[in-house]
Design a protein around this nucleic acid. Structure first.
Lengths: 320, 320
DNA sequence: GGCATCCAAGTTATCGCTAACATTCAAGAC
DNA sequence: GTCTTGAATGTTAGCGATAACTTGGATGCC
């Protein structure tokens, strides 16, 4: 028991005793068994976060914001990645819940029915991010991908573009991509810009080469097109590079816009017009909310469902 | 006890009983407590993997290979990211070990003394990846970053370049970057290409803009330079874009090579000469080794330290 | 019928820790 | 000198599962 106290701060123990114990612990290379500790104390000291991909700087920024906010709270973040599959997410949710996280963060608002039920019944704070689901599980920190995309359409419209296409967002695995496409379709209908011109490409994760292939297909199918919105900066970049190879001037022959304000959008030539979505802030606000919700939960109170909407904005650059 | 058996397959239980239990479990939304299970069975069912960054497609590929190999083995992967800091890694190792993983994968061969000790004493299989450490903790799956970089220097030499510079690799946080720089220095000494021309830039993670800034500094400092190797494709890309903005022809004014064979190297204009390093294979072989080592451990045998060297190769493209 | 066999389900102890309560003992109050 | 106080340490029980063993009862064989 004294050892248990010595290894935990904020407990009353003689400093000499503690020092002696710590010394022994270090010599022995002893490491506390947290399974046993959690079983006894009912606190596991971790929160789970599920993201679609571990290779996407947008999600990485959100995770960074989350980690930074959680730092010092005694809560560790355990990451899982779903590969854009709600079935993998379902499995991951179950295995995470088995380990009794004190809170869980998921990406997006689309989940299996079973996932929803498990999350709801888990009794821990659940936060959906990067989206504004119609029927949230509980808390939400995100923004409307559809609105963001519609804003971009209006921006292009204000710059004089009239025959605007959309590249990507047709996989039902990437719901945020699909929302962006839906926002595009809504906006061109509102602006009376004629029928939607949508080019689909393969499954997520979104690659640069998908954008390159899509723009060729786009020009073949609708030669009159004067602008294209890509579901992500990565595909926008691929599209722009393909245009360079084919001597299609960007933005004169065709304007290309992306989504996400990845580093590449600011760094490439021409720089890509895109939508900035404050990824880091999503993470930070998620972290803050999580801490509040967990604190409430410990007091036996359940925090009311929170809906936090983060900002987004079009960033006009040379590609449009 | 019967419930415990019902939820585990391969146990002898009447199928009617099992069905009844599963039905109840689903209705109640009951989820097994793995803390308790692990405590009792001494098997936690997870392995830990630590990578420097969750936003790097090279490491992401390795993790993907690892996940794929582990799939179906009953082992879950728990990810941690160290932000290129061995102190964060140290903390992460301790908190992972507290949860008693059945194996642990770390990136690189440089760790705190305490980390090394903890890992050695943990009694679980430890695999260092992405590097060939001089004194490995136990198993290694990786390649020599220095050799890979030297190979690239020789390739540039064979193409006629003689005043070759190196951009990056000067932060001691990124040991793989530092190894690549060391390999460059060794190679230009061997080839008698005069003094090393090295431009340093900020701390990892490596950004595109760092490459852009560095190439400007490089040309200012050594105008005679005819080729530059960047520590990563990302900085190489930034450098190339900066050259485009300044009308420095690549590769005529200056050739630019990268490292890692990221998607961007194949997709951008001009395509980037780089070194491919078989990231996915590192992950797969790590996974296989891990499974073997864990199986041995369970039989009470400890697998001999394995050293697996993966291939790498220069990919010549238009930028050099 | 008697007995061996085997599958299903029940019992008990235990994993390593910590919450909660109990004890000890020294210092200070009166 | 006695009592109070409180910090330091000790004791006990229990967290929720599973390993290992035991029991119950159906089946089949001679």
């Amino acid at each position: 028991m004294t050892v248990s106290r010595a290894l935990k701060n904020g407990t009353s123990i003689a400093s000499a005793t503690r020092a002696r114990i710590i010394k022994a612990v270090e010599e022995l290379g002893y490491v506390l068994d947290q399974s046993a500790g959690s079983l006894s104390s009912k606190r596991t000291g971790f929160v789970a976060a599920l993201i679609p991909s571990i290779n996407n700087s947008n999600f990485a920024d959100t995770i960074r914001g989350l980690t930074e906010t959680l730092e010092g709270s005694g809560l560790q973040l355990l990451l899982g990645y779903t590969d854009y599959s709600i079935d993998k997410e379902d499995q991951l949710i179950e295995s995470m819940l088995r380990r009794r996280p004190e809170g869980i963060v998921v990406t997006g608002g689309r989940h299996t029915i079973r996932s929803r039920k498990l999350l709801q019944q888990s009794g821990i704070p659940v936060i959906e991010t990067w989206d504004l689901p119609l029927s949230p599980i509980r808390h939400v920190v995100g923004f409307s991908n559809a609105d963001a995309s519609a804003t971009l359409v209006k921006y292009l419209h204000s710059k004089g573009y009239r025959r605007i296409a959309f590249i990507g967002g047709t996989s039902n695995r990437d719901t945020r991509g699909a929302d962006r496409r839906a926002g595009y379709e809504r906006a061109i209908a509102e602006l009376n810009l004629g029928p939607a011109r949508v080019i689909s490409f393969g499954t997520p994760p979104i690659s640069m080469n998908q954008g390159a292939e899509a723009v060729v297909q786009l020009i073949a199918q609708w030669p009159e097109v004067d602008a294209a919105i890509c579901v992500s900066d990565l595909s926008a970049f691929g599209a722009i590079m393909e245009c360079q190879r084919r001597d299609w001037n960007v933005p004169n022959r065709i304007a290309i816009a992306g989504f996400g304000d990845f580093e590449i959008a600011d760094c490439c030539v021409p720089r890509i017009t895109t939508v900035g979505v404050h990824c880091l802030e999503i993470g930070k606000r998620t972290g803050e909310l999580l801490l509040r919700a967990i604190a409430s939960e410990r007091k036996g109170i359940s925090l009311n469902a929170q809906l936090i909407t983060t900002e987004f904005g079009v960033i006009g650059r040379e590609s449009a």
